[in-house]
């Protein structure tokens, strides 16, 4: 089954209003999903289509755009040997999105890292602390408005 047909098969099973659009680039499919429905979509992908392996969970900061923070999930299906990317936006101030720790335990640290680096709040996360940086660090370094150098020395020494 080629990738287009497979994507259509997935799309037909997903609730219509949940998926906003589909992108394809270099043979990889991204589903852009409404942030309110992200848990439903991921649960469906996991249970119905066998995407049981959450490879990665990360975020991208599109600074001037609104909504600013895009949360990206990469899923892998062992049976079909397929990759799928699910994207959604974390809205609000602070940006908030539901946590998927209930679906995959591995999301725990991924989400902590996203919180640490982008300041995205994962609603329902059991233990949302900073992970790579220390408690009390000011700012979220992977945000686009955080400078590469020059700021830390004054603030956090």
């Amino acid at each position: 089954m080629d990738i287009k047909k497979y994507t259509e098969k997935i799309l037909s099973a997903l609730p219509k209003e949940a998926v906003k659009s589909v992108q394809e680039f270099r043979g990889q499919v991204s589903l852009i999903v409404e942030s309110e429905r992200i848990i439903d979509v991921l649960k469906l992908l996991r249970d119905r289509f066998g995407f049981r392996y959450l490879i990665d969970l990360t975020a991208v900061d599109h600074l001037p755009n609104e909504p600013r923070f895009e949360v990206v999930y990469h899923l892998w299906c062992h049976a079909e040997k397929r990759l799928i990317r699910v994207k959604t936006f974390a809205k609000g101030e602070p940006p908030t999105i539901s946590s998927v720790v209930g679906l995959w335990s591995t999301a725990n640290w991924h989400e902590r890292e996203c919180y640490d680096m982008f300041g995205i709040i994962f609603d329902g996360h059991p233990d949302l602390r900073r992970i790579l940086l220390w408690e009390g660090f000011d700012g979220h370094p992977l945000r686009k408005d955080y400078p590469v150098e020059g700021r830390d020395e004054k603030r956090n020494n």
Partner: peptide
Amino acid sequence: DEVLDWGLS
């Protein structure tokens, strides 16, 4: 199952 849940590779 645990391997899949914890995303091990």
